[in-house]
Amino acid sequence: MPKRKTEKKKLNIPQKNPEKLIAKDDVRIDGRKLDELRPVKIEVGVLGNADGSAYIEQGKNKILAAVYGPKEVHPRHLALPDRALLRCRYHMAPFSVEERKSPAPSRREVELSKVIREALEPSVFVEYYPRTSIDIFIEVLQADGGTRCAAITVASLALADAGIPMRDLVVACAAGKVDGRLVVDLTDFEDKEGEADVPLALMPNLNAITLLQMDGGLTVDEFEKAVNLAIDGCRELYKFQKEALKSKYVAVKEAVEE
């Protein structure tokens, strides 16, 4: 597998890798169909010391999220007089990729922290708790493409688990173009060798998009299709997300009522 690179060289560069990413019968390299998500496993409330937490496995991705707050802001001068300060740290563990990654926050991680925070902020009632901070910590334990999306999905669950009032959960899923075909939920390999990647975050009940990015090249028509594909992926993922949040309580209820 190629090592994780920081910059993506795409845009009209002819494909160098002769390997077929999609077989004739529309099967992708990992055996999925074009519109099929990777297998997901989500757990809520996995950490005892955080106010809220969640864990996701999406394909080979493994991500932990923890939430603290609302609490007094440190350092004090950062406090906002009219709303809570939402802070987010996206971090990849040194062992999360094939070649050891330096544990210091890279340019990419700083950017993703901001992007994830901005994707989650519209869902949180920050105006309810002025002069406080809500801190989100996202730790990528193992990465295989689409970590920003999976990170948004778990972080949203961790916020809900912390008991922070929210307008809606936020789910995220990517769509993209690989071998000239539109596909959903790209792996690392598909992301790098493919032509385009469109991560999208959605508040499913409000039907509102909180994150929309594109890397690579798509025609207007393809872009629209990719967005719709990503939205469908989000809705599918939302079922798992909601189930995970509920299952924590349903399990107790069933055990007691037996």
């Binding site: 009632f125 688990d161 409000l206």
Partner: peptide, 15 residues
């Protein structure tokens, strides 16, 4: 408590 109103629609805001 723990709900909010958007136009005429009421949504939950907590588990």
């Amino acid at each position: 408590e723990n709900t909010y109103k958007d136009d005429d629609k009421i949504y939950a805001s907590r588990v």
